[in-house]
Each structure stands twice: as C-alpha cells, then as structure tokens.
Nucleic acid binder design. Structure first.
Length: 749
DNA sequence: GTATGTGACTCAGAAATTTGTAC
DNA sequence: CGTACAAATTTCTGAGTCACATA
C-alpha cells in the first residue's frame, strides 16, 4: 500500500521536501484564503481582454477576438510558487536522470465504424437486457432460514476440477478447502429486476466490523533507549513507538516530513514526563524493538503445522461470522470487514501527512447501517456504537471517520456481490452507449477547437486529451493536504512542453506530470495542429505553475458531457477507450492457428496495450532480473534437451532405415513425439519469457479488473476455445460471473 | 445563481499471504 | 517426504471521480 516508489527507476522520486517544516502551520486558514484568491483571480481574468500579447507574432489572428488571460498569476499560486519551483527543479533533475522514463507508446485508437446519433435518452433506467421474469420477493424475515444452508457454499467455491483433485481426500477440515462442493445453484442476480429508485436494498443484516486486536505491551526485556539510556514508556507512548519501530527498515522513516509528523503525533500520546524528556527523535533508539518484531515474524514463519492450521481455522471462523451479510434474501460476501488497525499514515508519493498517527478506531466511532427489521450487530461488551442508522439509499454496512484527512471510510460488499456487480455491468453499458455516439462527440469537440469562447476551446482540448490519451478528469485538490498530483483539468503549464517539431513529427506535445498515486505520466504525442495552436494560446503569459485550463474544471466539463449523452462523464472515456482497445487488439493479435499459450500471449498483449494506454505502471518486481535469468536457464536447458532429442531421432531414423523392422519404426515414432513435446515446452517457456519481459513495469491487474468489459474477454475465450480459467482466476470469475454467464462468442462491445 | 464542502463510491499499486514447484 | 524459493493471489487502504447539499 505504501508509496515507496523510490526503487522504481522510471518513476520520479519526489523525495522529501526538506525545507518545509513549517508548512502545516495554519494550513487551514491559509488554504481557505488561497482558494478565495484563486477564484477571485479567475473571475477577474474573465472580465479582462487579451491585450497583453506582446512579442506575439502568432499568425493565428483570431485569437485576438477572444478574451483570454492577461497572464497575471493566480495569487494563491504565488504563495506556493516557491515550493513548486523547488519541486520542479527536482522533477527536472529526475527527468534527466531518468530519460529512459516510461513513455506511453502511441495510443492505438480504434475508431468505431458506426456512428449514428442517438438522442441522449434516459438511461438511468436500469433496464436489463434480458428479461427473465424472476420475481424478486422481498421477504426479509425469510432470508435467514433460506440462507442457512449457504454458509458452506460461499466460502469454498467449487473450483476447477484440477484444484479439486489436489484435495483428493475431501476431508472437512475447518479452514480447508472442501473437495466436494455441491455445485449449488448460484444466484443469477443479473436475470432479475433491478431497483430503479435509488434504493439499494430492502433488507440488510450483518454482524458489524471486526476491530483491530488490542495492543500488547512489549515484554520487559525489549527496551527503548533515549539518548543511550533505557527508558520504560507508558503503554500509549510505547504503542506508537512500535509503529515506528516496525517501519525502521523502510525508507520513509528517514524522510523529514515523515519523522516530523510522527514525532509531533507521538508526543501527543506521551505522558507529561515523557514529553519533557523525549524532545529529539534523533536520540530515540528503536532498534531493540525492531529486532524483536523481526524475531517475532521469524518465529511465526517457523511455527509448526498444527499451530499454523489453528490460526487458519480461527481466521476462517471469523470470516464465517463477520465476513458475510444478508442482503435481500441472499448471503453476500463483505469486502473489508476488518477495521483498519492503528499505525502511521503512509501516503503515496510526496505526501505532506506521511508519518502522522492513524488512530485506533473504537466502537463509539462506528456508524452501523442495517435494516430496521434486522438483528442489529452488537458492539463489544461495555461499548456503544456511535449510531445505528437504516439508510437503504447507500450500500455500506459500517462507516467511520478517519483522522488523517477527515474522510469517511466504509465497509462494503465484495465485488462478487449483486450490488457491486450491477453497478459494474451498468458502467460498461454506459461505455457502450458512448461507443454509439463517440463520433458525433469527437466532431463536436473538434468544432469547438475553433470556438470564439476561450472556455469552450479549453473544454474541447481537455476533452481531446481525455479521449485520445485516456487521462483522468483531474479534480482540484486542497493544496497541502495531499501530494501534488494532477489530472487533465488540473494540468499546469509546467506539465507540458510544446515541440512544433520533434523527431520527424509535427506538433508534438510532451507530457510529464504525476498522476493518481503519484505515478508519473510521461508521453510525447503528436496532436492536431489546432490543438497545438490552442495550447500555445492557453499558455501565453502564464507562469509554469498556472493552470493550463484556467477556465475549466471537472464540474464544467462533466456538465457539458452530461448534455452530450446521458450518464456521460470524463471517466466513461477511459472505460470506453480501454474496452474498445482490448476488443480491437484481440481481433488484430489473435491468430486462430496458434496454440493456447500463444493465444494467451496475444491476450496479454492486448491487455498490455490497454494498461499502457491507461498508464498502469508497477515497480519492477525486486526479483525481476533474477527470475528472468532463471527462466533463461530453463530455456537453455530445454534447448539442449531438444537438440539431444533431435539427435536421437535422427539416429533412430537411420537405424530404422537400415533395419526396417517394426521395432525401430516404433522407436522413431516415440522419438518424434518426444521432440514435439519438447518443442512445445520450449515454445511455452519462450512465450513466458517474452510475456514477462514485456510486462516488467506494466500492471495488468487494474485494467483487467476495472476497465475491460469482461464480456469481451469471455467472448474471446469462447471463440478461441480457451478455458476462461486461463485468463480469470477464481476471484475474478466470481466478480465477473455475470459476464461469464451472459456473453456468447459473438459478443460485441 | 455560483462556489465550496461532503458523502459515496470506484480505482490503484504495494505488501502480505498462499500456493506451486523444483530439488 | 520436507524445504526453499518464486509465482500467484489476496489484502489493504490510499487516491481518485462525481453528484449533490449547503451557504
């Protein structure tokens, strides 16, 4: 979870901001202030005219007709300019060093051929495509009994037969996979009617959250030292100290912001005496504590089988008790029924709050959501919930407010649940509706490149980026509260470079910014001339840290999109472009004559094209080089084996020619088979190596799980005779059960 | 009306854990 | 059989998107 990206060569190491130790003071006031100024400035700018184009020999005269910014920097930004400048320098440093940075290859955009205009019809209607008249009986009380038999089923889904064979015995050990599992008819919620009125459920019953285990004080021989001298800490202070100790090996315990935030919060937990004594984090020695935890984890690994099984069984029991809820007659799996334990906050990237104490959540922090007529979850003895409410317009079971950002956290259902699945399905249906009108929308925004109104031009260019490059919308963020990252609408001038000519291409825009999770987006793309000219215009008289699209935000953009198509938002473009790219790449890359591994390589490559489009990166696995080497060793061995086998085949053939008897002919056949088998194995290994190498820094999971209409993949499997297990593991098959059930091989996104 | 804040939900990669496999 | 290690899967929780409430 933590964002230690420093080991990723190709990502910018934003490093810690060394000199901003005072930054957080009064941030609230400051922030508010900033924002006001900002808005005012935008307002003011709007009323001004572009009379300040000095030096501009720009031929595009029409821009004179347009209002545009006078180049004064927004005040709120001025305040932060210094900081950003510093960062920028760092960024550039990084850039230089990391010239080999990840560059998203050209987006292979498939243009859907059909383009008929469909009036934005209301689609909130949760109409399902196939209507089975399965009645949706809502009889809350019944549910339980009805579901009593289900407990068993859910946990250990019958898996592929291959797995079963492993479990040959079929013993019913608790926490073990049961071998035989009555196929138990699974609930096909996708064949049922959906709620249409914002109601999410009629009945909801659950057992509440599982709290983090209580803190166990350290044994007395494990000491903390201050200024070289052992010091016994109060339990409160000690607990927080252990959080730090457990992270000692991690890089961010060396970062200034992390240390400063930690120390500040730690001191809050200290007794008066401790507070007086412990004044310098540098004098704190946690190593003995750290060693102790390492030893503990070693001990855990070395536990006997029985002990391990016992723990497993206990976890299973908790899962059975708390891991499921009953929603509308069905037992459903809960995603995160365990409350986040206390610890030190680790933001991603250069987060101003890293190191802060994430406090322990108690029952009185918890809001329970369930139906009135359900059996309410019990708070632990002697405690009370903050509130029990019955809001069936939301999907969460439990919520609490987290203390770092003040945001709300939720316990919700598993992706395999009806409530998540329906929404997921709907998402792809919206994307498919976009497919039907995307040409109209593209023509529209290309027209808008020429608009007289600056606002509309900016909107058009932003939309062009979102569509062409699958950028995220880019909401504004509160400065100082989070890492400095941007999306499309929040791009700043410093994030792009314009090259009228670059490497033989015209009108190239070079993007370099940190996006979600502080993942670097670096890309050079040729754009339409009009886009290029517009960008020049938008950047006129601006400072590097001014907004590129100063007249635009996500709200304006999404309002516009909503008018173009019902349910259309910026992120629908990402879904649409991801899915259509997969479909088109699969078509292009799959060769019907190839064998299964080769086809799967094609699938992975199609998946990879999408991951690259969406900029889904990962840090190369620590063991990457080594594992490639191992694989290469295997390949070499296999090659040797192959040439041996071939040699043997040859001699067998020669032998058979001379002897001409049945036996030697048989021997030839055997050898031939052997050669073939080895060839196949070698091929498989080579494919694997290719796949792995190409995947070094690319994360396929996110797109597979969140952007690719699963029906495309299912259809591809069916058409190519690939078992769906080859591309979706068990969890994924559960999540996409609806798609696996409904898509046939002719499915078209 | 607009700007801002809030809530609910999706999506994100790393870390932890489990499983598979070669010896 | 165990053992060691790598690969696969699951868990974790932070970071976005976006609608809507509120001032």
């Amino acid at each position: 979870m933590s964002g230690d990206h420093s080991h990723n060569e190709d990502q910018i190491d934003c490093g810690s901001r060394v000199n901003d130790s005072h930054k957080h003071k009064d941030k609230y006031k400051e922030k508010e202030h900033k924002h006001k100024d900002h808005k005012k400035d935008k307002e003011r700018d709007r009323s001004k005219h572009g009379n300040s184009d000095h030096k501009h020999k720009d031929k595009e005269r029409e821009k004179d007709k347009m209002k545009h910014k006078d180049g004064s920097a927004d005040k709120y930004k001025d305040k932060h300019k210094e900081k950003r400048k510093e960062e920028k320098i760092k960024l550039e440093d990084g850039k230089v060093k990391k010239e080999n940075g990840f560059a998203s290859p050209q987006h292979v955009k498939s243009e859907p051929e059909d383009d008929f205009y469909l009036p934005p019809k209301h689609e909130k209607s949760l109409k399902r495509e196939r209507d089975d008249d399965v009645d949706y009986d809502i009889k809350p009380k019944k549910i339980k009994t009805q579901n009593d038999k289900k407990p068993k089923k859910r946990k250990l889904e019958e898996d592929t037969k291959s797995k079963k064979t492993k479990n040959k015995k079929g013993e019913v050990t608790e926490g073990k996979k049961k071998a035989k599992n009555e196929p138990e008819d699974k609930w096909k919620w996708w064949e049922e009617e959906r709620y249409t009125d914002g109601v999410k459920w009629k009945f909801l019953e659950h057992k509440g959250p599982v709290f983090a285990p209580q803190y166990e004080p350290l044994p007395s021989h494990v000491k903390f030292y201050y200024d070289g001298k052992p010091m016994k800490l109060s339990p409160e202070a000690e607990e927080v100290a252990t959080f730090f100790a457990k992270m000692l090996d991690h890089e961010y315990t060396t970062k200034d912001i992390f240390r400063k935030n930690f120390f500040k919060d730690w001191r809050k937990e200290m007794s008066t005496d401790e507070k007086a004594k412990i004044t310098d984090l540098k004098k704190c020695n946690f190593t003995e504590m750290s060693e102790y935890f390492k030893a503990q984890s070693e001990a855990r690994k070395a536990m006997s089988k029985e002990e391990k099984l016992k723990i497993k069984a206990e976890n299973e029991r908790i899962l059975q008790e708390y891991g499921f809820c009953i929603m509308d007659n069905h037992k459903e799996r809960i995603a995160n029924f365990r409350i986040e334990p206390p610890g030190l906050f680790r933001g991603r990237g250069d987060h101003p709050k890293m190191g802060m104490l994430k406090r322990r959540i108690r029952p009185q922090d918890i809001i329970i959501n369930c139906s009135k007529d359900s059996k309410y979850p019990e708070p632990p003895p002697g405690t009370k919930w903050k509130e029990v409410r019955h809001d069936n317009k939301v999907t969460w079971l439990v919520s609490w407010t987290e203390n770092i950002q003040g945001s709300i956290k939720y316990i919700m259902l598993n992706p395999s649940s009806r409530i998540k699945g329906e929404k997921d399905w709907q998402k792809y249906e919206t994307a498919r509706r976009l497919k039907k009108c995307v040409d109209r929308i593209r023509n529209q925004y290309r027209e808008d490149f020429k608009s007289k109104e600056m606002k509309i031009r900016q909107r058009a260019v932003a939309l062009y980026f979102i569509d062409k490059l699958a950028l995220r919308a880019g909401n504004e963020k509160e400065e100082g509260e989070t890492a400095d990252t941007v999306g499309c609408c929040s791009l700043r001038v410093e994030h792009i470079n314009l090259h009228p000519e670059n490497e033989g291409q015209e009108y190239v825009v070079e993007f370099d910014f940190l996006g979600k999770d502080s993942i670097r987006y670096y890309n050079k793309v040729p754009v339409e001339k009009r886009v290029f000219k517009n960008l020049q215009l938008f950047m006129e008289n601006k400072e590097p840290d001014d907004d590129l699209f100063d007249r635009l935000n996500t709200s304006i953009l999404n309002k516009h999109l909503q008018e173009l198509m019902d349910g259309l938002t910026a992120k629908v473009f990402r879904t649409y472009n991801a899915s259509i790219t997969l479909q088109q790449q699969l078509k292009e890359l799959t060769n019907a004559d190839e064998n299964v591994p080769a086809k799967i390589l094609s699938y992975n490559r199609a998946n990879r094209a999408v991951a690259i489009l969406c900029n889904h990166q990962r840090a190369p696995p620590k063991t990457f080089e080594k594992s490639m080497q191992n694989l290469q060793t295997k390949i070499d061995a296999k090659r040797d084996q192959l040439s041996d086998a071939r040699r043997e085949l040859k001699s067998a053939k020669a032998d058979a020619k001379i002897r001409k008897d049945e036996k030697s002919r048989k021997a030839v056949e055997t050898k031939k088979k052997a050669v073939q088998r080895i060839e196949e194995q070698l091929m498989k290994l080579e494919v694997q190596a290719t796949d792995r190498e190409e995947n070094k820094q690319i994360a396929l999971g996110t797109s597979k799980l969140n952007y690719l209409d699963p029906r495309i993949s299912v259809a591809w499997c069916k058409k190519n005779g690939i078992p769906v297990e080859k591309i979706y593991n068990k969890t994924q098959r559960e999540k996409f059960a609806w798609a696996i059930d409904m898509a046939d091989e002719d499915y078209e996104f």
